[in-house]
Structures are given as C-alpha cells and as structure tokens.
Design a binder for these strands. Structure first.
Lengths: 152, 152
DNA sequence: TTCTATGCAAACCATTTGCATCCAT
DNA sequence: ATGGATGCAAATGGTTTGCATAGAA
C-alpha cells in the first residue's frame, strides 16, 4: 500500500484544521488520530482497518468516532467514499486536482488508481449522445494484477 | 421504464425452467411470479419493487422468497446484481450477448443502458498498461437526463 | 411419500443514533 | 461553564438463515 509523504499529510491536516475552525468544530485527539492514519496510508481503507491503526495509539477509541470523523472528512472534501465489489465501504484521499479510476485485482484485492483522458473524453461524448449533462462518473476495472498472474 | 416483449419473457422463462429441471429444482408459483415480474419490467428493480408487483398477484409472498429467487436467477446467469449510488441492490436482466454500461440521472433516478466499443477498447488498453488481465468492468455516468434538464 | 420451497421471525452485519459523560474552548 | 465530541449500547435497514409447514415431484 502506498504512503503519503509527511509534508502532504501535514498539508491535509492543515486543510482539515482550517475547515474545523471555520465551522467552529473542535480539534480533538481522536480526530487528529483518525485523520492522520487515513492521510498517511493514502490507500483505500475500511473503517475497521482505520480503527485498528488508531487503537495502536489509543485503545479506547470507538467505532462511532471513526465513522463520524470520516463523515466529517467527506463533508469537507478531503475524503471520498467508495464501494467496490465487497460489502465494506472504503475511503480514499480526495486529491483535489484530478479524477482517477480504479483497477482492482480480484485475487489480492490490491487497488490501483489510474487516469485516462481519452476515456474521459469518450464518456463525455457518450453522455452527450443521450442528452445527459455529465456530473461525475465511476469506472472500475476488475482483473488479475501483474504479480498475481506471475505467481501461477 | 422499459418492458420486454412477451416472446422474450417466454424465452427467458424457458431458460429458467431448463436450468431448474437440470438442477432438480422445483417450479413453484412464487418463482414463476417473481421471475415474470422481473423479466417483464426489464428495468433495474429493487427487491421491494419486485415484491410489491408480485403481491398484486399473491399477497402472501414473503421477502425471503424474492431474495432467494433472485439469487437463483443470478446463479443461472439470467440476472445481474447492481449497486448504484443508493443503498438498495438492483437487478437487471442479463442479456447474454453484449456488455453495457449505465447512465444514471441524479434527479429522476432513471437508469439508461448504453454501449461504447471504443471505451471498451481503451479500458482494455489501460488495464494492459498496468499489467492487468482484464476480467470485467463497471462504468457508471451520473448526471442530469434530457428531460430533467428541460424542466428547468 | 419425500424432500425442496415457502413464510415467518429471528439473526446478521455495517452503519447510525440517543444519551450520559468528557473535554476543548 | 458551556456546548460540541466521545463511547457505549441500542436502534436501524438491508439481507440472510433456522425451522416448522406447505406443496412439487
């Protein structure tokens, strides 16, 4: 799993703090822990995975707090909620600049992000063809990753 | 919502019956009702929507039977399960021939199917670029449909 | 008759919420 | 001190399952 450089994590924490201050929300240790774990991993974590990491620092943190903190991060635009083919909801860091899609390995469950401008363009065209004004999209490619194919 | 021609519905019922016979499963009135409602609508129905339609014919049918029948239809390849942005699972008739993607109107929730060979080709290329062997994909475009745009 | 399918209610599981308490401000 | 945040447990909502009974074969 990828890991975000420390200065990026700090920048994101800064954005979160700014948002909380603007909204009159309180900066608690739990919020700091959850968001740090989330930003650092830069992966596609589930609530359970984040809670496990948070509890390494503070064993008394509850599920509800992680749910509530992630909801806050989604609200302020720093996290996106994603549902892949399993039952759990996963969260990813919302990189403000560019949209990306996902390649998901059916064997090892690895999730890789990619971008393809050409596909984006064709999507816009397809939407137009049906009279739609395109707002957002979701593209997931499922298959076997290079490593899992190699191991056979 | 679209509606499938009667002869297509019959063909699908035939496939289901063949499957049940092959597997030694029983042809019950409930299975007939649920599959008929599902095939006829040819839309993207939720369990609740199907149960409501089924109960117009037989008020005593239970939720579990609809769930179990749809599971059966997925197993025999006549239905696909889909999760769009809401919480409910929806089912669509699996047309054996070709893959399709979805345009979803954020306002009226209408779901339109479309195909785009060029996009498919680019998806395969993107997967390849990352060393993936592509198995399946999911593409959903969200926006406002022609009618909802017109109404403003 | 035999054994699968059904209906009901209870069980499940992820997520949300109510409430007393805690703690950042 | 005040009111938002937390932790716990209970509630919720979609889906699944156990079990006694109904009904295909």
């Amino acid at each position: 799993m990828s890991a975000l450089p420390a200065q990026d994590v700090e920048a994101l924490q800064g954005q979160l703090n700014a948002y909380m201050e603007r909204k009159g929300l309180r900066s608690t240790n739990q919020r700091r822990l959850v968001s740090e774990v989330f930003f650092r991993a830069d992966g596609h974590l589930s609530i359970d995975e984040m809670l496990a990491l948070v509890r390494e620092q503070d064993a008394k943190v509850g599920y509800a707090t992680v749910y509530r903190t992630m909801k806050l991060l989604v609200e302020c635009g720093l996290a996106n909620e994603r549902q892949f083919d399993d039952t759990v909801t996963r969260f990813e860091v919302a990189h403000a600049d560019s949209h990306h899609d996902h390649l998901i390995c059916l064997e090892c469950k690895r999730i890789i992000e990619f971008e393809d401008e050409e596909i984006e363009r064709l999507q816009a065209r397809a939407a137009e063809r049906h009279g739609f004004k395109l707002v957002s999209h979701k593209l997931e490619l499922y298959g076997q990753c290079a490593e899992c194919r190699g191991q056979k």
